[in-house]
Design a protein around this nucleic acid. Structure first.
Lengths: 121, 121
DNA sequence: CTTGAAAATGAAAATCATTTTCATTTCTGC
DNA sequence: GCAGAAATGAAAATGATTTTCATTTTCAAG
């Protein structure tokens, strides 16, 4: 576990959810760390190999990462103004777990977001 | 529905499963069709917008496409081999609707995928 | 059958996340 | 301190996808 990996883990802890390599790099720079984008990619790759972070893909193909096993929440995002509300997802968790079990999948995670137009817009 | 889209649909029918844009382009050329890679991408984009093909991502970020199965559904994706299972999401729909209503959101849509490791891997 | 505007087409250039290269710096154990 | 190994990051390379733009095709109206 080298310096870059420690830095990346710490910023992932701060973020608490999914983020892309480029976002994480920006966050690290903004918080005063000195680290190259290359090292962020290398750290994420290595952490992913070691099952310390989950990696998946957004619809546009960009990779996003988060700490494994982190308890997480979901977002309700306004399509118009972009404001977000954190929402509770136990029903969703149950659904995901049931579906995965039904098909024999292990090490299960999920990604879910709800979009709509908020009351103000 | 233009010529390119028809050609792409026909090759997708022939393939019967997922294939990348580049693979589809090669297959079309090999079977004697004259079509540019650009047009393959454009056709896939348009067919995807029209919900005629499903688009998703391999682990390496490359997009793969196939003719849509029937109704609105979600995917259970294997992080290791990329195989997917279409799953039923009525529990998810209910959750999304309830959460949106609770916060006064309108015109609601959602995005959800479950990922894990399939029984074979 | 013309004509002209709109749609379609594709080659080449641009984009952009990610990976690779490679020269330099930092650790390590001795 | 010192040699070799590991880590680092800037810059170049890669590769899928998108955009640009000039050309071709389609097709309805005259």
């Amino acid at each position: 576990m080298n310096k870059s990996e420690l830095k990346v883990i710490s910023v992932l802890e701060r973020v608490g959810g999914f983020a892309s390599a480029q976002q994480l790099h920006q966050l690290l720079l903004r918080s005063g760390e000195s680290i190259g984008l290359t090292s962020v990619y290398r750290a994420l790759q290595s952490l992913s190999d070691d099952k310390i972070v989950d990696q998946l893909r957004k619809e546009d193909g960009e990779a996003i990462y988060r700490l494994c096993g982190e308890s997480h929440h979901h977002h309700l995002v306004c399509k118009s103004c972009g404001s977000t509300v954190e929402i509770e997802g136990s029903a969703l968790e149950k659904w995901a777990k049931a579906m995965a079990q039904e098909h024999g999948y292990r090490e299960v995670g999920h990604l879910a977001e709800i979009f709509g137009i908020c009351p103000k817009c």
